[in-house]
Amino acid sequence: MTSHRHRITNRQLGAWHRRLGLAAAAILILLVASGLLLNHGDRLGLSRIYVQRPWLLDWYGIHAPAEPRGMALGAHWLSELDGRIYFDRHELSNVRGRLKGAVIFEDTIAVAVENDIWLLTPSGAIIEQLSAAQGVPDGLRALGVDRAGRLVVEAAQGIYTTDSKLLKWRRIAPQAVNWARPMEVPPALRAELAQQYRRRELSIERVLVDMHSGRFFGNIGVWLVDLTAVACLGLAVSGLWLWARRAR
């Protein structure tokens, strides 16, 4: 009698073991795949690979800010979109912050971003970054060039100019300066910048983390992952139980 009851219980347990396994399989495969990739994410550089698919960016609600802040420099444009700085269509990946001004200065382009001045070649390559440590006056507000062709900045404590190597800054009296002013960015460039912005916002690693936690699918996803975890616990317990019974 006891043996018959055990046989039925074992059969029932086996059936439940299979059902649990099947129910958990799909999500378990997703968890294992995303977990393995995340474990090696640093080596694979997943945080620096960005999602390009528009539908996925839409799913995350990632949109470019409406209006870039731009300044025309002859045939080129220096633009800022939500703290990202672009030379024409190319992002200056190390430069972040509010664009305060951009002017052609001698054979370079000087760009004021936050409290730093960046010098670029005429083709947009970064020559160097100058900050307060290199003598740039605190609290940059505007950038311009005076009639003598000297670089001039408006800072928190007044107006300053510098030598050609930008080594020494000295305060000067207010005078006629051609200040860099924001202008309306051409529509074609604006559209291109919006696309570029979106394509640098969401990393593959972020998506994998959200898939692994279930958040990619919202609250339902989190619950499904929780249920899968419980199912895995059930599989372990039922599997051990079956093994113990058969071993006896």
Binding site: Y60, G61, L202, F216, F217, G218, N219, G221
Partner: peptide, 12 residues
């Protein structure tokens, strides 16, 4: 709250 809003909130 939709799944999209949850993701956007988490991202923000």
């Amino acid at each position: 709250m939709t799944a999209r809003h949850t993701i956007a909130a988490a991202f923000t």
